[in-house]
Design a protein around this nucleic acid. Structure first.
Length: 616
RNA sequence: GCCCAUGUAGCUCAGUCGGUAGAGCGCGUCCUUGGUAAGGACGAGGUCGGCGGUUCAAAUCCGCUCGUGGGCUCCA
């Protein structure tokens, strides 16, 4: 028997009660599986009746009845033959027999029984249904049997359960709170970005305020690149299909690319020949006709820059960096605000190195990723060593090269001094990688920073440098992006700060609040002085009384407010009210204030954390 | 791409049984000139996502389509 925590037992038992309730109401339903999860439980059903929200309510009511009946959970150990009989007697052969086959011979086979309901189950469970005191069904979602999209899609009912009603209420309230920091809401409220139907799904429009944040982040990275021996380059957004045939992107990843761009003369003559769509597709794949591709990755272009000159071992490492925009045709159901989009800008770089430089260079890249995260106070990430899936054919290159790359990454990650886990099947098609993964407000994980080792593309593009022995040698490549993509990173960053950005990133750093219109002129003078020092400043001359101006500035999440009344104007002082740094609060000279803000910006100080008093 | 849900003013949402629309915030004009989280009055904004159907009549019912949300699959 598997031992579960008390909470897991409650959730697991809730799943059984759910299935029992569904069978009472809809006896034709076929059951698949229903485990506990990190935040609740689910059960997968095959039913011709769509489970609407109304039906969910009915099911929930039936579950409450079952709990009230206080059925005992009873474990029954059986032989394989007996198990088959129980499953058949219940009419649940469709999925349960397959699940039975999954149980290895040496393991015992058990059912859990509560009331009239039996389920093939290793356990464990609570003793009686009444032990489930606080649960709620949340929503229905489609899910493929065994997670394979070739299989039938089942209906998954999600729910959650806790040991007490208070904990359940608290959990539901937390979900509501989290929605408020969702980057899609904050991004709209603060005017950071916009995704427009007419422009296209998953294509982000950065509005002026969002553009400031992105620009600051790019400047931050650029400064680090200059310190660390990178050279910045620019490359176009489209390239010939041949480039991507060589790299292997086309046609193998055709499904996740925008369709190729083909010249209209070529299309016209193909049309005259009566060329069908599938013939066109074949001709493209075989290289009979050429076209251009919206670039899905920057590396092929950087590789061609490397190749454009003869390289000596003395030149290496060559580190080419670019904020490069790439386009990928993500499935429509996958798109999500800024975190999963169809056009995004990577803070990309490719390092061309000698093999013996591999350790040092990987560690340099990892250090940069770690620096970026620590400057932004993002300590809540996990590190994943993404390795290839053995026996899979989705990778290019020789196993020996993969082994070398994987070993190098394993060694490098140890120097990071953080916990990490290895995961099979997460590698890129050309090489293994180390990924920095963070969670969004809903608990979904997103890959941000990444460092990847690649022996394959140098091979495919026949790259070489001249060694000290005067012979040609093959360089190794590292792909790395500390933010990953500007879009995704900013989305996560918005949620991380809940819109309360540190001053260096805040689109509006200081807002001056004049007490009355007579003081606007004075306020403009002060604004001029602050702008001279490079501080992004504005004046609120519209919002009515002081209280209203303060409220507006708080809601706009402005780091610093300067309140200017008659008193301040006469004494040549400003009254500071600061979210980012409460130490600045109070009356002081403008110079003193601007010096403090300038140093805050220069040092990229993180905002002081305090709860907002506002009620929404 | 698939399943379910959903789409009404810039935003958040109400709109009963089918009888051509409402609120709050925001925005505009005017009044108010104020001391640390909302001063007041008036006003302008909507082919009810789009197309088609049923009906004397559609925001409301049906079909298709586009977008969005939550999942599943995918993520070089």
């Amino acid at each position: 028997m598997k031992e579960m925590t008390p909470l897991e037992e409650i959730r697991h038992s809730s799943a059984h009660i759910l299935a029992a309730a569904v069978l009472r109401l809809y006896p034709e339903t076929k059951l698949d599986i229903g485990p506990p999860t990190d935040s609740g439980f689910y059960y997968d059903f095959d039913s011709s009746i769509p489970f609407t929200p109304e039906i969910l309510e009915k099911i929930e009511a039936e579950m409450k009845k079952i709990i009230k009946e206080n059925q005992r959970f009873e474990r029954i150990e059986v032989s394989r033959e007996e198990a088959k009989k129980i499953i058949s007697d219940m009419g649940q052969q469709t999925y349960k027999l397959g699940r039975l086959d999954d149980i290895p011979d040496e393991e015992s086979i058990s059912f859990y029984r509560n009331g009239e309901f039996h389920d093939l189950c290793a356990g464990s469970h609570v003793s009686y249904t009444k032990k489930v005191k606080a649960f709620k069904l949340l929503h229905v979602a489609g899910s493929y049997h065994r997670g394979d999209s070739n299989n039938k899609q089942l209906q998954r009912i999600y729910g959650t359960a806790f040991q007490t009603k208070d904990e359940l209420t608290e959990h539901l309230e937390r979900i509501e709170e989290a929605k408020k920091r969702d980057h899609r809401n904050i991004g709209r409220e603060m005017g950071l970005f916009h995704i427009d139907d007419m422009v296209g799904q998953g294509l982000v429009l950065w509005k002026p305020k969002g553009a400031i944040i992105r620009q600051e982040l790019e400047n931050f990275i650029s400064e680090e690149l200059n310190k660390q021996g990178y050279s910045q380059v620019f490359t176009p957004h489209v390239g010939k299909l041949d480039l991507y045939r060589t790299s292997g992107h086309f046609p193998y990843y055709q499904d996740s690319q925008y369709p190729p761009i083909i010249h209209r003369d070529c299309l016209t003559s193909l049309a005259q020949e009566g060329c069908t769509c599938s013939e066109l597709s074949n001709k493209l794949e075989e290289g009979e006709i050429d076209g251009y591709l919206l670039k899905p990755m920057n590396c092929p272009m950087h590789i061609r820059i490397f190749r454009s000159e003869q390289r000596s071992y003395r030149d290496l490492p060559i580190r080419l960096a670019e904020f490069g925009t790439v386009y990928r045709w993500e499935q429509s159901g996958e798109l999500n605000g800024m975190t999963r989009v169809r056009g995004f800008t990577q803070d990309d770089a490719h390092l061309f190195i000698r093999e013996e430089q591999l350790q040092e260079e990987i560690q340099g890249c990892l250090g940069l990723v770690k620096l970026v995260f620590s400057v932004l106070g993002m300590n809540d990430y996990r590190v994943r060593v993404s390795l290839r899936e053995p026996d899979s054919d989705k990778y290019v290159g020789e196993p020996e090269a993969w082994d070398k790359a994987e070993t190098a990454l394993r060694e490098a990650v140890k120097t990071l001094e953080v916990d990490y886990e290895e995961e099979l099947g997460e590698a890129a098609f050309y090489g293994p990688k180390i990924d920095f993964v963070v969670k969004d407000v809903i608990g979904r994980e997103w890959q941000l920073g990444t460092v990847q080792v690649d022996y394959n593309l140098p091979e495919r593009f026949d790259l070489s440098y001249v060694g000290s022995d005067n012979k040609d040698h093959r360089p190794v490549m590292i792909h790395r992006a500390p933010f990953g993509s500007m879009e995704r990173f900013c989305g996560v960053l918005i949620e991380h700060f809940a819109g309360n950005f540190p001053t260096w990133l805040a689109p509006e750093q200081v807002r001056i609040l004049p007490m009355n219109d007579d003081l606007i002129e004075h306020a403009e003078k002060l604004m001029g002085q602050l702008k001279q020092k490079g501080i992004r400043t504005s004046i609120d001359s519209l919002s009515g009384k002081l209280g209203a101006k303060i409220r507006k500035a708080e809601n706009d999440k402005i780091p610093h407010m300067l309140i200017i009344g008659k008193k301040e104007a006469e004494q040549e002082k400003v009254s500071v009210r600061s979210r980012a740094n409460p130490k600045l609060d109070g009356s002081r000279s403008l110079d003193e204030f601007s010096a403090a803000v300038t140093s805050e910006i220069k040092n990229k100080d993180l905002p002081f954390k305090r709860q907002s008093k506002a009620k929404d």
